[in-house]
Write a protein that binds this DNA or RNA. Structure first.
Length: 358
DNA sequence: TAAACGTGGAG
DNA sequence: TCTCCAAGTTT
């Protein structure tokens, strides 16, 4: 069979399968480019089931790109709280402003136009163009990588530029003129529900007849695994600092890890230093205040992508000084009942129940 | 090019 | 408990 014939077969079988097996997802009930864009940003490196509720909440609260653009970043971050990769939220805010200010309130419909938006790369531009505008644009996400590597038996590290080039070229050849968005969604759907990383359900796969990896019985070995670096553990001292029933919280710098989120003050423990010493030092360095460190409240373990932290949380009493923003953007004294108004990282939120109970 | 960037679910 | 990894982008 020639390549074009095989491509036609793949398209037809995949779309037929998709028509019968597509999950009912909220963003599949709309044609609104804003809603499609929002879903695609949220779905970056994030599973469907995690995104569902966030997506619905966002659209109810910010029904148009104008609402999104006009909302304060703090509102966006509070809605995004817990979804992770907060750069996405900050970039989305910028992108919404771009749409309203530079594109006359309409999302661009071309790949080039879409990729000008903050947080929209090659994948997301292709997804929006094909799904919202019917453009014959390819996409390559983790699912597509897995499916293509298996169907065409592609060996080698899929993250290298040469392999990426092959994958994008294949995806580009495969995506049909008719229903390009459905085809792209179908590829991802197949990867998410059938062609799993471990234990792929080949018996349920519409592409089994043309899957070279399956024919050779090596589907589990493709795509080739990328070696990961070890994750170091960081020891952090955290203070819940009280002053007349209120707690001191600070806002992190706008860029970098957890940028723009609120947190309880603290910092890394140095070797040879106790947690209590570290806490007093960090609070002095970052806020220029003196505190009394009382009892240990809780120890929180949390894993990030590239390191793990152990938060040693202490109840503290404010002693003296006026808090300064030396390593943060904003400072507030809040009642425990008001904590929920602010966007906190998940590791910090793990402290809330202990706090409100005690 | 490689590293930074969150979180929750699955095995 | 631990490792992998999921609809990637930016620097």
């Amino acid at each position: 069979m020639t390549d074009p014939d095989q491509y036609k077969l793949i398209r037809r079988r995949l779309l037929t399968w998709f028509d019968r097996n597509a999950r009912d997802l909220p963003w599949r009930h709309t044609q609104d480019p804003y809603a499609i864009w929002l879903s695609e940003i949220m779905l970056q490196q994030t599973q469907v089931e995690t995104v569902r509720d966030y997506y619905t909440r966002f659209l109810n609260r910010l029904p148009t790109v104008h609402h999104f653009a006009k909302a304060p970043l703090d509102t966006i971050l509070k809605l995004w709280e817990g979804l992770g990769y907060y750069t996405r939220a900050r970039n989305a805010h910028k992108a919404a402003k771009q749409v309203t200010q530079e594109f006359g309130g309409e999302f661009p419909s071309t790949l080039e136009g879409l990729q000008q938006l903050s947080g929209v790369g090659r994948y997301t531009a292709g997804a929006i163009a094909s799904i919202a505008f019917g453009v014959r644009a390819p996409i390559v996400d983790g699912n597509v990588v897995r499916i293509l590597c298996r169907i065409f038996c592609l060996h080698g590290d899929p993250t290298t530029s040469s392999m990426q080039k092959r994958l994008w070229a294949l995806a580009s050849d495969l995506v049909p003129v008719k229903r390009p968005g459905d085809f792209n969604e179908a590829m991802m759907e197949l990867g998410a529900t059938v062609c799993h990383r471990q234990s792929p359900a080949c018996e349920l796969c519409p592409l089994k007849p043309m899957c070279r990896a399956c024919q050779q019985g090596i589907q589990m070995d493709l795509p080739e695994r990328v070696k990961r670096r070890p994750r170091p553990t960081v020891q952090v001292a955290v203070g819940v600092i009280y002053k007349r029933g209120r707690i001191l919280i600070d806002k992190r710098p706008p860029e970098g890890l957890l940028g723009g989120l609120w947190e309880f003050p603290g910092g890394k423990k140095k070797s040879g230093e106790s947690f209590r010493q570290a806490l007093k030092r960090e609070v002095r360095e970052e806020l220029d205040i003196e505190i009394l460190v009382n009892k240990k409240l809780v120890v929180v373990d949390h894993a990030y992508t590239h390191f793990q932290v152990q938060l040693h949380v202490y109840v503290c009493e404010f002693v003296s000084g006026e808090p300064q923003c030396l390593a943060c953007t904003d400072i507030k004294w809040v009642l425990p009942s008001q904590l929920a108004r602010y966007a906190f990282p998940t590791a910090n939120r793990k402290i809330f129940p202990v706090l409100l109970r005690g």
